[in-house]
Design a protein around this nucleic acid. Structure first.
Lengths: 195, 195
DNA sequence: GTTAGCATGTAAGGAGTTACATGATTTT
DNA sequence: AAAATCATGTAACTCCTTACATGCTAAC
């Protein structure tokens, strides 16, 4: 997940490690504050594997500590797209993973976006079913805290699904008109995810 | 986190591994489906450390595959209470951790509950501030997806805080009256978290 | 001149997952 | 008799955190 996030940020512009950590926190809105103990080793690994290169932008001013400015390579661009479309089933980090993905959604084709949104929706729907089952099974024999936990879990999951439905509908609209309309909807041109 | 969950479930009644995995999924409402590859080794570790014992409830009927039924020990009870009060800062698993904790809240004293609820609230408040800052900084220079991500993050965090406020208020009420009122509010008697 | 922030890094370890392997029991 | 579910387990691995260590620069 960290590799994906790093590559995605470097795709926008070259940056050094410390900067990446701040931008990452900002892009994820505080849902994930990455530690330097994972950031720097990951940068080295990505460089070793040829996904990024560090520019010798050291010492711009005399005596100042080296700043390793990294830039993404062609290889990095393709592994970025590969990582962006992977959908592991890890229940623990699933939510954060989806957030990271969504932060870079603009790099995917409308079809892929729809596919990912619908997969996410199905996953939340499963969760909702699971919670509702638990609520039916557990009601009366469970204490107030566990009950509140389940009810709130149900409500926020339902609200997440409703929010996703909005995104899906917007995406469908874009897909319908996208084939006809000339020119991008914004400053960024339309994407296809073939590397 | 898994240790905490296992001990908490075994505190209610003895169970075998497979059963634990289902109850865990149920208690967490599908937010965490634990894998057997982590469950069974954790059970062995807990047994090795004396937190649980496996009852020789093997072969109740001839030829049937052994079911290792585990029971919590006195040592297990105290490490359960210790684990329940730990609050690591891991941003990745923070939300799930809090859910697990809340599922066993009845085992804590009202004071400890209030402390944990307020710590959680502060953490969500930080997140909300972080998101709001990002929104102010990023607006106009960020695409629709990233924007939607942040707005939804802000809204659901705000809603989580409002929900927590409800729990906190209820807890304060309980704390005020708890000192006067005779008898528990339910079938379970009042708890103190001293082991 | 000392505290806070910028900047990079390493070592050890925690906490889980995936994939595989086995076998019994119940349901269709 | 095949398929699904119950039940336990191991080996290899992924991915990230904590704690530590270093040193420069800006602000108070």
């Amino acid at each position: 997940m960290l590799e994906l996030a790093i590559l995605g940020l470097l795709k926008e512009r070259p940056m050094h490690g410390y900067q990446l950590s701040r931008e990452l926190t900002q892009a994820l809105g505080g849902f994930w504050r990455v530690s330097y103990g994972s950031l720097y080793p990951t940068l080295r690994r990505l460089e070793r594997d040829g996904a990024i290169v560090s520019q010798p932008s050291d010492q711009p001013v005399a005596g100042r500590r080296r700043k390793n400015v990294y830039r993404i390579t062609e290889d990095g661009e393709s592994s970025f797209l590969a990582l962006l479309q992977e959908t592991p089933h890890d229940t623990q980090t699933e939510d954060t993973r989806f957030r990271v993905r969504l932060a870079f959604f603009r790099y995917l084709s409308p079809e892929t976006r729809l596919r990912l949104l619908e997969r996410r929706r199905a996953s939340l729907e499963d969760r909702l079913t699971s919670i509702s089952d638990s609520l039916r099974a557990a009601r009366e024999k469970v204490d107030d805290y566990a009950l509140a936990l389940m009810q709130h879990g149900r409500d926020s999951t339902a609200s997440d699904i409703a929010w996703l439905d909005g995104l899906i509908e917007a995406e469908r609209g874009r897909a319908r008109h996208g084939k006809v309309r000339r020119g991008g909807t914004r400053k960024r041109r339309a994407m296809s995810d073939a590397s």
